[in-house]
Amino acid sequence: MNKPIYDLALTLWNYHHLNHTLRPADAILVLCSHDVRVAQRGAELFLEGWAPLLIFSGGLGVITRSMWSEPEAELFARIALEMGVPAECILIENQSSNTGENVLFTRQLLAERQPELETFIVVQKPYMERRSFATFRQVWPEKQVIVTSPQDSFEEYLNKYSHPGLSPDDVISIMVGDLQRIKDYPDKGFQIPQPIPDEVWAAYEALVRAGYNRHLISA
């Protein structure tokens, strides 16, 4: 990857990060995907005592349905168990296939739970922090949420991407697609609006022109 492309992608990476400060919560909600380090981050937060309940949400999505035969949440929960999280502290939602469903189906799963949970730490991939926050606030606005992710730099993430079938160029294309969704999804009722600085949108357009368009949605 040449430096101009790297710098454009780094602009998007930095924008997607929210840099929230962790605080204790009622539950940790892990939004599952192809990146198993998200499971590890969620388990670490539980073991550090940030919340007494660890929830994994994810069935099979666009990427993982060609990678795995079992739901993402089942695989992620097994990782947490292997790391020492007690089974009785884990809840699994294994039907969702996108971020909106992650939140909605988790909300439905918890509807009868007493006492009701009010505060959440959402754990997601680093470049999906902002979209996860915007989606959660749209689907479940009455709850308090902060978002975190595996604590990797952009360079570290590209060097350690979690599956051999997902290249650094694939990661950049996914980031480009996520920024398009941050712009377009509020009008569809999927997310709350997020401001996009001019320099971030200019980086997006340059990356699209350079061919990083494989995860864009049709207008």
Results as ranks from 00 to 15, higher is better:
residue 1 M to S: 14
residue 6 Y to G: 08
residue 9 A to R: 06
residue 20 H to N: 15
residue 23 R to V: 09
residue 25 A to P: 05
residue 27 A to N: 01
residue 28 I to V: 07
residue 31 L to C: 11
residue 34 H to P: 09
residue 38 V to S: 03
residue 47 L to V: 06
residue 50 W to H: 05
residue 55 I to G: 00
residue 61 G to K: 03
residue 63 I to Y: 08
residue 63 I to T: 15
residue 65 R to N: 14
residue 66 S to E: 13
residue 69 S to F: 07
residue 74 E to Q: 13
residue 81 L to F: 08
residue 90 I to G: 01
residue 93 E to V: 02
residue 97 S to F: 14
residue 98 N to H: 15
residue 100 G to T: 09
residue 102 N to S: 07
residue 105 F to T: 01
residue 107 R to F: 08
residue 108 Q to S: 12
residue 109 L to N: 07
residue 116 E to I: 11
residue 117 L to S: 06
residue 118 E to Q: 14
residue 118 E to K: 14
residue 120 F to R: 01
residue 124 Q to F: 00
residue 124 Q to H: 12
residue 128 M to F: 03
residue 128 M to D: 01
residue 128 M to S: 11
residue 131 R to F: 06
residue 133 F to P: 00
residue 137 R to T: 02
residue 141 P to D: 10
residue 143 K to M: 02
residue 147 V to D: 01
residue 153 S to M: 06
residue 154 F to N: 01
residue 156 E to S: 13
residue 156 E to C: 06
residue 159 N to G: 09
residue 162 S to M: 09
residue 162 S to K: 04
residue 162 S to W: 11
residue 166 L to K: 10
residue 176 V to W: 08
residue 177 G to K: 02
residue 178 D to R: 00
residue 178 D to W: 06
residue 181 R to H: 13
residue 183 K to E: 10
residue 188 K to S: 10
residue 190 F to V: 13
residue 191 Q to R: 13
residue 194 Q to G: 09
residue 195 P to H: 07
residue 196 I to Y: 00
residue 209 R to M: 13
residue 209 R to A: 15
residue 213 N to K: 15
residue 215 H to F: 15
residue 218 S to D: 13
